[in-house]
Lab assay of single mutants.
Amino acid sequence: SRSVIRSIIKSSKLNIDHKDYLLDLLNDVKGSKDLKEFHKMLTAILA
């Protein structure tokens, strides 16, 4: 869910600018399909 993804971003080791950017992107995501794609992208970034 959106709140879980937000929590993953906030607890990541990324610097604050990257976190803010990803949180802004997350706010722009519409629909469950796009949310799944965003989660895939985030997982790849944090891997």
Rank of each mutant, 00 (worst) to 15 (best):
S1L: 15
S1N: 10
R2F: 15
R2I: 12
R2H: 08
R2C: 04
R2L: 15
R2T: 06
S3M: 15
S3D: 13
V4G: 06
V4L: 13
V4H: 11
I5G: 01
I5V: 05
R6S: 08
R6F: 04
R6N: 04
S7P: 00
S7H: 13
S7Q: 12
S7G: 09
I8N: 03
I8E: 04
I8V: 06
I8T: 05
I9W: 00
I9H: 00
I9R: 03
I9D: 00
K10A: 14
K10L: 15
K10D: 05
S11H: 13
S11N: 14
S12G: 03
S12Y: 02
K13D: 07
K13H: 11
K13S: 13
K13W: 11
L14G: 02
L14E: 01
L14Q: 01
L14T: 02
I16G: 11
D17T: 11
D17P: 07
D17M: 12
H18Q: 12
H18K: 09
K19P: 01
K19C: 03
D20F: 10
D20S: 15
D20P: 01
L22Q: 00
L23D: 02
D24G: 14
D24L: 14
L26H: 00
N27F: 05
N27Y: 06
N27D: 07
D28E: 13
D28S: 14
V29E: 03
V29I: 12
K30Y: 06
G31L: 07
G31N: 12
G31H: 07
S32I: 12
S32G: 11
S32D: 13
S32Y: 13
K33F: 08
K33N: 10
L35Q: 02
E37N: 12
F38L: 03
F38M: 02
F38R: 00
F38N: 00
F38D: 00
H39A: 12
H39D: 04
H39V: 15
K40D: 07
K40I: 11
K40Q: 09
K40M: 10
M41N: 04
M41D: 02
M41V: 05
L42C: 02
L42F: 05
L42A: 02
T43A: 10
A44I: 11
A44S: 10
I45P: 00
I45W: 12
I45L: 11
L46C: 03
L46T: 03
A47C: 08
A47V: 07
A47T: 10
A47E: 07
